[in-house]
Structures are given as C-alpha cells and as structure tokens.
Design a protein around this nucleic acid. Structure first.
Length: 494
RNA sequence: GGCGCGGUACCCAAGUGGUAAGGGAGAGGUCUGCAAAACCUUUAUGCGUCGGUUCGAUUCCGACCCGCGCCUCCA
C-alpha cells in the first residue's frame, strides 16, 4: 500500500509520491534559538523526525533540511538585555536545542542558518524588486507586494480578494502600499544587528530565510515542507508567495503541519504555569523516552493532551516493551520454529506499516505492537516460542523502534547530562529527588551489580531469604530492578 | 465575525454504515519462599445533546451545547 499523507494545501489525505523517483526532499521550519525548547516545539520536531524515519524505512532516500533562525526581534532584544552579541546569544541556545533533540531521539537533519545566507537573501530581494514584485520604502526596508500574487491565501484558505486596503487600522504602517504586504527586509535600527548588502544595510525578514535556504539546499521545487500549525499563516503563505514569484514554479508539494498540544487540558502558556521545556521535565525526573513515547502516541494531526499522568503511563508502557525485548534477548528457547509466532511477527510488521502508511497513524501502530507483545508473552509463558521465532519477533520490535525510538538505552546518560547542566547553570536546587535517583542508578557498574546478584543467588540457594532480600532491597534502592526467572536472575536499571 | 479541528469507559486514546483497537489504572485469579516480570478474567447495550436519513448510525445530514486552533512573526 502506498503512503498516504495529509496535505494542508489540498486539505486532503493524498498518495505520497516524491517528485524524483525514490528521493524525498524535505524542509522543516526549525527553532528560533532565543530560549530552551519546550515540549510543544518537540512535538513538532519529533513528528517530522518520525515522518523522515518512516520515509527511509519505506525505502526512500531522504534529504532533510532544517533551518535555525538565529536572528529576529526576540533574539536581538534578549541579546541586548544580556549584554552579549547576537552570535554569542544564539550559540548557547542552538547548542541546547541540538542537545535536547539528540536526548529525545531526533536524528539531526542538515542544518542551515539564517545569518549564513544573508547575501543570497539580499540577491533574492533584488530580483523581486527588479520584477516589480517587491518594493523599497523610504526607510530602506523592502516589502512583498501581495497584490502581485493572486494565489495568496490558498494554503491558509483565506480570501483576500474582497479585502480593501486601509480597511484595517494599520495606518501607522506608513510606507507600505498595502497593509497586508509583508517585510522581506528590515532596515537597520540603532543598536540592532545589521548587515551591509547589495540592497543596502539591514536584516532579513523572517519568511525570507526559509525560501532562500530551502531552495538553495533542495531546489526550486521539493517534496515536503513541514512545521507547526501556527506557521500556515502567515509564514508558509508568505514563503509560497515569495518563492513562486521568484521561480515561477511550484514550491513545496506537500505541506505537513503538526497540531499544537495541550498541557493538562489547556493551552500551554507561561501565564497559566503549565509551560514546560524539555529540561524542566527531565529535572522533575521524567525520562526522555517517556516524553518521546507520549509525544508520539497521538497522531500528529490530533490534539494531544500532555499530562503528568500520561507521562507516568508512557513510562510504564515503555517499560513493558523493554521488558519484553529483554525477555526475548536473554531467554533460552528450544530449537525449531512455531508457525503461530512466525505469522504473528509478520502480521505485526504489516499492521504497523499499514498504520503508518495511513497518514502516520501512530496510535494504531502502537496497538499492533502491543498485541504482538501480549500474544508473544503468553506464548513465552506457555513455552510456545522457539529459537527461530526470536529473531523475527525482535525484528518486528526493531522495525517499530526505527520509527519510535524509545527502546534503546536506559535514559540514564541523558538524565545525567541534564543534571550536570543544572549544576553548572546554578540550578542545582531544581534537580528533583527522582532525577537524582535515576542518575545514581548509573553509578554502579555492571560488574558491581553482577557481583551483588551472585551473592544474592548464593544466599537464596542456601535458603537464607532474609539476606537475599536485603541484598535485593539494596539494589532496588540503587535503582536496579531484580527479576528472578526460570532462566536465572535478570536485572535492569530503572 | 471568517476558516478549521475535536467531544469515545476512571485516565490517555484509535476506529467503523452492521453492532466499540491499544495503553494505563482498579478488582479477582495463575505463577512465585517473597517480590518483580508475565499471563488470564473483569470494567462503555455505549461513543456531547436533540432531531433526521437508513432495515440498521457512534460512524452520514441538520440544529444546539462544550472545548481547542489560526486570522501579521507562538512549534
């Protein structure tokens, strides 16, 4: 079955076919690096990451480019407030963004930065001016003339036809031909970052960078352009207007937008006190894998209600999957194969693929996997799994994880990284007891743990349960979970 | 006001014109020295409300109620 993806432009789920044979070119509007990323940001970037992963799993070669907006009003303001240069200011948050992305399992795309493409942007504006599509105002800013682009509003389904210029109250926007015209280039203001260019001094407007950089990296027409739903208007509408005016060709083929999430049933906002950066959550002791799992559990076009209860549930679900994996990996099985398990694994792979083929229905992919886990666990208990079944079941799990990326590792290194960061930032007091415990479970080496377990087993064999239980309690306190199974003791870090 | 999305069990959350996936939580049970893990059973005659279409609607249509998003730089 072909991959079907919702396209904001057509408001429909369409069959996905790249413009070039087996190569997908996609661009995502990345972060403006003026602060630490919040979970809403990461829902979007994780959704795009999953799209990219699924396309590759489906056999496409993917060229995935993301921009870093490293100059804008907020950055200029905050840098000035902190008394540092724009570059110094953004470097810190770009680094944090990349660390956070890696922590939450996002594969790094090719990155492009606005400040590294200033000259190209100026040339772009110059060409639009030459064609009468853009114009310069007295202060040295440049605007895009929306009247020159009849298709304006097609993406966001807005009708600007009947709207009279001046009907809006933007009378103080003195020089613009029309209130709707948007800035391509902003003239310098005293004390603001500014570049000398072929069209004069100043800095780029926000929309310009994405047109210029996406086309520079991916060509004039490419397959997917992604971002949060808020970008549909005006950002992406403006990108289309600029780009298609510039090239005379269709810009992006598919428009992929991720719905905003809710936190505890309400829009996330600082004033409501439900605003969380990724680091805030890890400081509270939540694992990156739980956060990623929760963010991937609801299909990207549905509203996701992010709650702390949900986060706990996600943690349990990830545990269950990891336990299952370890059970298979560590268990011993009789030789041969079992038809039921063989077909279960194959069926599950198929079901996950169809679920994701259907506009990335991650909830259904989860359901398919959990059904396999339950049935395989039951077979395990009934000795119904044979040696040759194990690689197939593990492969199905691996297929899942190629997209969802929550099974590998144990989160301890990532959590330690956040803990260390908090210490160096003078936020030691924000490190929760839970985080401290999680980090501690990384202190004991595997050899230490196995030595303790050997003592424990010896005690138990001597029916000295009191001592054995004491050792187990000690390990539990250190964040190590002990499980006695028919194949011996199995352990893992919590 | 314009455009759009959603309201499914205690919580999260899929889905379909023919009788409700999955996860978590609760209860009971199996296994076990005890745990842990795992499995089994169980928890919505019901899918916001009221009408309509239909042999049949949670699924289609209409109205209403509630929540949410975008409408100039918030992912």
């Amino acid at each position: 079955m072909a991959f079907r993806l919702y396209n904001t432009m057509s408001s429909q789920v369409e069959e996905f076919h790249p413009l070039r044979n087996r190569e997908v070119r996609m661009y995502a509007c990345g972060p403006t690096v003026y602060d630490y990323g919040h979970i809403g940001n990461f829902r979007t970037f994780i959704a795009v990451d999953m799209l990219q992963r699924f396309l590759r799993q489906s056999g496409y070669t993917v060229r995935y480019v993301m921009n870093i907006t490293d100059v804008d009003d907020k950055i200029i303001r905050n840098a000035a407030r902190d008394g540092v240069s724009v570059q110094q200011y953004t470097a810190k948050y770009e680094k944090a963004f990349l660390e956070d992305s890696a922590m939450i399992g996002i594969e790094q795309p090719t990155l492009v930065r606005a400040t590294e493409h200033i000259a190209q942007m100026a040339d772009f504006v110059a060409k639009l001016v030459k064609r009468g599509i853009a114009y310069r105002t007295d202060d040295g800013s440049y605007y895009f003339r929306i009247a020159s682009f009849p298709r304006y509003g097609r993406l966001s389904k807005k009708d600007f036809g009947g709207m009279l210029d001046g009907a809006r109250v933007d009378v103080d926007e003195y020089d613009k031909d029309s209130a709707r015209d948007f800035a391509l280039w902003k003239a310098p203001k005293p004390g603001e970052a500014s570049w000398e260019t072929s069209i004069g001094p100043g800095r780029p407007g926000w929309h310009l960078e994405c047109s210029v950089m996406s086309m520079a990296e991916l060509g004039e027409s490419f397959d997917v352009h992604a971002g949060g739903e808020d970008l549909i208007f005006p950002h992406h509408e403006n990108e289309i207007a600029q780009s298609e005016s510039f090239t005379g060709k269709p810009f992006a083929h598919f428009w992929f937008h991720v719905r905003f999430l809710l936190v505890e049933g309400e829009k996330m906002s600082k004033s409501l006190g439900n605003f969380y950066t990724l680091r805030d959550l890890v400081l509270k002791g939540h694992k990156p894998s739980s956060i990623r799992y929760l963010l991937t559990s609801v299909p990207y076009r549905n509203q996701l209600n992010f709650t702390f209860d949900g986060l706990k549930q996600a943690a349990v679900s990830v545990e269950r999957l990891r336990n299952f994996r370890q059970r298979l990996a560590a268990g011993s099985f009789p030789s041969g194969s079992c038809l039921e398990m063989q077909s279960l694994a194959a069926e599950t792979v198929d079901r996950m693929k169809s679920a994701l083929d259907d506009d990335l229905n991650t909830a259904q992919a989860h359901a398919a996997l959990f059904e396999m886990v339950r049935r395989a666990n039951a077979a395990f208990d009934a000795n119904g799994i044979k040696q040759d079944d194990v690689p197939l079941l593990l492969a199905a799990l691996e297929k899942f994880d190629e997209i969802f990326a929550v099974l590998k590792g144990n989160d301890v290194p990532q959590m330690k990284q956040v803990s260390d960061w908090a210490s160096t930032e003078g936020r030691k007091k924000d490190i929760s007891l839970e985080l401290r415990e999680a980090v501690q479970s990384g202190q004991l080496s595997d050899a230490d743990i196995e030595k303790k377990i050997a003592e424990m087993v010896a005690a138990r064999n001597g029916r000295n349960f009191k001592f054995s239980d004491a050792l187990r309690a000690e390990l539990t306190a250190a964040g190590i979970v002990i499980e006695n199974t028919k194949d011996g003791v199995r352990w893992r870090r919590k």
